[in-house]
Each structure stands twice: as structure tokens, then as C-alpha cells.
């Protein structure tokens, strides 16, 4: 479970990048976080993962406060950043072993090989990550994030660069994970993916959460795309 209470973040005095965000992503839920560029999506995700400290408010991951108990909170999530260019000089296997060491993963051989096979990465494991294509990098980061079986998945634009097969595989994994009573929180620009996959979506614009609701609530009147455009454009006009 991810709980965000009255969270704000200001980079510059007097200007809030995220403004009074209140959100709770329950166990067993896939939550899609939407918003135009520069709306505050990445800032929110960075605050949830402890990369950025909120100016005010409280963030808890499975009851662990990310500010007060950062180590315990971080153990509870798996994170995929928006940019998969990570540790380019390491080989895939070295990167996965590094994460397995940090998270003290047991039965690592079995876990690594299972995930690697599932994402079709076997032939890349012995190569340096700077030789990978964008999609392959994305897949290896995904495998790394899932390695320690975290209950909460926090994925920043996880579908970017994935081929259709890998994207399908990831969607299946997300559904599977949520069905087991775990949480998936992901940001995306692809509204169709959010529409098909999410139990609930949240739309953020200019740092404020302007809509939270289930697919049923969205579908009552219009499509997610119409709702998104209507809400974000209305805000822009204001």
C-alpha cells in the first residue's frame, strides 16, 4: 500500500511543483498516474521513492514512512526510473547480482533466470549494458526492480521503448502482481494502456491532483482521453 498525505514540493520559493497531494493506492490495485509534461508526475514518484524530500506532508509505503524509516520503506518497493541508462559499464548479470546483493535476495539464480527468460534477456546477460537497445535496457531494469519480490511496484513510464511482446509480458506481470494483493503504481502517457490496465487513475496537472477515479467512473460519460484533454485543457485556460 502506498499512502500520500497532503504532500507538497517546492523547488523555488512560492512555486509548488506538487501541491497538497492526497492519494492512497490500496493493496491489490493497479493505479495509473497521468498528466501532461511538467505536471508533477516525476516529482511525485521521486518523493515516493525517497529521491526527493517533500516540502510538507507524509508518504508511507506499507506503513513505513519514507522519511523516518527510509531503509525499511525502500525494501518494500521496486522502482523503474523513466530513464533506463543505468550503470552502462556493468554487464547485465553484474547489475542483477549487484541488486541481489543489496536486497539480500535468496535463491537469486532461480529468480534471475526465471525473470530473464520471461523477458527474453538470456543472450544479453553477459554483455555490457551500454551495448543494449533502449528496450533491452528497460527490460533489465524491470528485472532488477522485481528481483526482491517487492510488494509495491513503482514504475515511471515503464512501457516506453518496450517491444509489443515485452509490453504484453509486463502488463501480464502487473495484473498477476495486483491479483496477489500487491500494489502497482505507474505513470504513463499512453492513455489506452491506463484505460485497459488500471483499476483507478489519477490525473495531475500543474502539481495538483485534478481527478482520481476508477475506470467505471471515467466511462460513465466519456473516454479517458476525452476526460484527460478536457481536464488539462480547462486548467490551462484558467
Amino acid at each position: 500500500m502506498i499512502s500520500i498525505k497532503n504532500v507538497s514540493k517546492s523547488y523555488v520559493k512560492g512555486k509548488k511543483a506538487v501541491d497538497g497531494l492526497d492519494l492512497e493506492i490500496k493493496n491489490g490495485e493497479i493505479f495509473g498516474f497521468l498528466g501532461p509534461n511538467g505536471a508533477g508526475k516525476s516529482t511525485t514518484i521521486k518523493m515516493i521513492t525517497g529521491i526527493l524530500e517533500p516540502t510538507e506532508g507524509e508518504i508511507k509505503i506499507d506503513d513505513y514512512d519514507i522519511k523516518k524509516d527510509p531503509e525499511l520503506a525502500k525494501q518494500e518497493y521496486g522502482y523503474v526510473p523513466d530513464n533506463p541508462e543505468i550503470f552502462p559499464k556493468l554487464k547485465g548479470i553484474e547489475y542483477l547480482n549487484f541488486l541481489a546483493d543489496i536486497y539480500k535476495v535468496e535463491n537469486r539464480e532461480e529468480k534471475i533466470m526465471n525473470l530473464v527468460k520471461r523477458f527474453g534477456l538470456s543472450e544479453y546477460l553477459n554483455s555490457q549494458m551500454d551495448t543494449y537497445s533502449h528496450g533491452t535496457k528497460q527490460k533489465i531494469i524491470l528485472v532488477g526492480a522485481l528481483l526482491h519480490d517487492p510488494k509495491n511496484w513503482i514504475l515511471d513510464e515503464p512501457m516506453t521503448g518496450l517491444d509489443p511482446k515485452a509490453a504484453h509480458e509486463l502488463k501480464e506481470l502487473m495484473i498477476e502482481h495486483a491479483k496477489k494483493g500487491n500494489t502497482v503504481f505507474f505513470s504513463t502517457h499512453v492513455l489506452e494502456v491506463a484505460e485497459k490496465l488500471c483499476d483507478r487513475v489519477g490525473i495531475i496537472n500543474n502539481g495538483k491532483l485534478i481527478f482520481v477515479g476508477s475506470y467505471e467512473e471515467v466511462a460513465k460519460n466519456e473516454s479517458l482521453e476525452d476526460l484527460f484533454l478536457e481536464l488539462t485543457e480547462k486548467k490551462e485556460e484558467e
Binding site: 554487464k91 541481489a100 546483493d101 543489496i102 539464480e109 534471475i112 533466470m113 554483455s127 555490457q128 551495448t131
Partner: peptide, 21 residues
């Protein structure tokens, strides 16, 4: 675009040896 593209390898137990943090 040239990198250290290693040959495909059959990984064994020793390749997954745990280390401390």
C-alpha cells in the same frame, strides 16, 4: 556503438555467488 558485447554464456552457480552490501 561498439561495446563489450560478451559471448552468450551458460551461467553457473559461481556466477550468482552472494556478496555483502
Amino acid at each position: 556503438y561498439m561495446g563489450s558485447k560478451g559471448k552468450q554464456k551458460n551461467f553457473q552457480n559461481k556466477d550468482f555467488k552472494p556478496k555483502g552490501i
